[in-house]
């Protein structure tokens, strides 16, 4: 809470963005405390890592300092206080924290918890619900991410090829950073793969793996200068990879359609239904991971590659 207030008061946007990153990390710790391990994972990788870097790149392209506020803050403050008071009043009827008899826990969740491990054949219920029971939603969300990537590229322009800005380096030649990062990057990428393929059994999955992988490349690009990561994975590859991920996801659905079952029913993918579910979830998560990775990285390329307009 204190960090949120500080973020409102400060006018140095650089500090605001850094505080926002800290806020995200604290939120992730809170999620961990509330048993949401998968969510904590994602929030830590996305909120504290990727969002901060993207916001800093945008700040680099615009201005660091905010102007003095010119409006009287009383009216918005009044509106906010009234809305907040109404919401607090509404919470008085809400179920208490951790109440197992709350309405949310009565409807579909017990079935997911009881049958999920048998029907889908994987212990991590979050992954089972995400990729199997709620496969339609997740497909929609993957398409949303793909569309967002497309929108950023339309707004900022597409750069082809690896030779966009070779040799420009944002933070200068830092030997210590380079050595440390060189050691870290293989570990980050390995960890991303682990999170991806271990998502069926422990916390993890395609969304987290995609973000962690992208964060590894973003780090490489930040420390070794722009153009270095582009040489490893050129932007035009990324565009094709993003489309490929959506295609894999949709393709799995079409295969089950061709076998005479509903869209995204994985039990036909192998002779044994549970095995088929497992294979389907793995493929779908792969599609999600590829799309998330390539969209996040190409958004970073688009923002960082744009030259500051003087």
């Amino acid at each position: 809470m204190l960090i949120a207030i500080a973020a409102i008061r400060l006018r140095d946007l650089f500090a605001v963005v850094m505080l926002f990153g800290i806020y995200s990390l604290l939120t992730a710790a809170l999620f961990m405390n509330l048993d949401a391990v998968d969510v904590a994972f994602t929030e830590a990788a996305v909120g504290a890592g990727v969002t901060t870097v993207l916001m800093l790149s945008a700040l680099h392209l615009t201005r660091r300092w905010e102007d003095e506020p010119r409006h009287n803050p009383l009216l918005p403050l009044l509106v906010v206080t009234i809305t907040g008071a109404v919401l607090i009043y509404a919470t008085l009827d809400a179920p208490l924290l951790g109440d197992a008899s709350a309405p949310v826990h009565q409807h579909v969740a017990p079935r997911y918890i009881e049958k999920g491990p048998q029907e889908v054949g994987m212990p991590n219920m979050v992954t089972a619900v995400l990729a199997s029971y709620r496969g339609y939603d997740t497909f929609g969300e993957t398409v949303v991410i793909f569309t967002a990537g497309l929108a950023v590229m339309l707004l900022l322009g597409i750069q082809e090829g690896p030779q966009a800005h070779r040799g420009r380096n944002a933070i200068g030649d830092q030997v210590v950073l380079k050595v440390v990062v060189k050691l870290l990057i293989p570990l980050i990428l390995m960890y991303g793969l682990y999170v991806h393929f271990h998502g069926d059994f422990g916390a993890g999955g395609g969304f987290q793996a995609g973000v962690i992988f992208a964060a590894g490349f973003v780090l490489y690009d930040l420390v070794f200068g722009e153009g270095q990561a582009r040489a490893v994975i050129p932007p035009n590859w990324l565009h094709r990879l993003a489309a490929l991920g959506v295609l894999i996801y949709g393709g799995v659905g079409v295969v089950s359609l061709l076998q005479g079952r509903p869209f995204l029913d994985y039990s036909v993918l192998a002779h044994d239904p549970v095995h088929g579910q497992h294979l389907g979830v793995l493929l779908v998560e792969l599609g999600v991971g590829i799309t998330v990775f390539s969209v996040v990285l190409s958004i970073f390329y688009a923002l960082s590659g744009r030259r500051r307009q003087s």
Binding site: A36, D38, T51, L54, A58, V211, I299, L303
Partner: peptide, 27 residues
């Protein structure tokens, strides 16, 4: 309950994508 976790997990990643669109517009 795993269901809210699933919803928020995907919402976070969608959130970063939409924030990026916002930043691109600001630029």
């Amino acid at each position: 309950n795993p269901l809210p976790h699933v919803l928020i997990l995907t919402a976070i990643v969608v959130g970063v994508a939409t924030t990026a669109v916002g930043l691109a517009l600001v630029v």
